[in-house]
Amino acid sequence: MKQNWWKILGAVLVLYSIISGFIFPVPAQAILHETIRNLYFHVPMWFSMMTILGVSAVYSIKYLSNSKFDNDIVAAQAANVGMLLGILGLTTGSMWARYTWGAWWVADVKLNGVAVSMLIYLAYFILRGSIDEEQKRARISAVYNIFAFVLYIVFIMVLPRLNDSLHPGNGGNPGFNKYDLDSTMRTVFYPAVLGWILIAVWVMTLRIRTERLKRKTLFNE
C-alpha cells in the first residue's frame, strides 16, 4: 500500500479532472465555446507522452551502458504507452480541430510534429520486429531510439520557428494562459496533467510487469 499511493493519487486526480472538467464554469469564448473543456483532456496527453517517451530514451541509454535486459523491456513498453498517448492526443485534438478550425486535420506544425513522432515509433517497432536475436534486438533498437529521440526533439524545437501555428500561443494567437486559463481552469488543468502522467506511468509499469512475467514463463524460472 505504501508504494501504491501515487497510483491512487493519479486515479483520484484524473477522476477529479473529469468530473470538475465537465461541471465547473469555464470562461465564455467566441469560437471555442464549451469545447474549451477539451483542454483538460487533450493537453495532458502531450505532457504525459513526452514524459513517457523521455523515460523510453533514458532506459535505452541505460541499456547501452549496462546491457541489463530489463532496461530494454522498460524502453520498449514505454515507447508502446507513448504511442497510445499519442493516438489519444491526436484523437482528442482532431475532434477539437473539427469544431474550432473546421477540419479533422489541418496543415499545422504541431500536427506535423506528432505525425513524425508516430512514424518514428512505428519504425522503431518494425525494427524490433525484424530482428530475431534478443540481445541484438535490444542493442540495435536502443541505438535507434536514442538517435531518433534526439532528432525528434530538434524537430519540435526547430519547426515552430519555421511556420506559424493555429495553436494558442503561436503565430499571434493568444496563449491560453494569458486570458482564457482563469483561476478556475487552472485548478482543474494542473491536477489533470499530473494525474494523467501518473496514470500513464501506472499503465507502463503494468505492461512492464506483464513482459517480465512472460519472460519468466518462457525461461521456466
Binding site: 513524425v116 519504425a123 532528432l151 525528434y152
Partner: peptide
Amino acid sequence: AILSFPILMP
C-alpha cells in the same frame, strides 16, 4: 527507408 524518413524531417 522507414527508419530514415521520419528522422530526416528536421
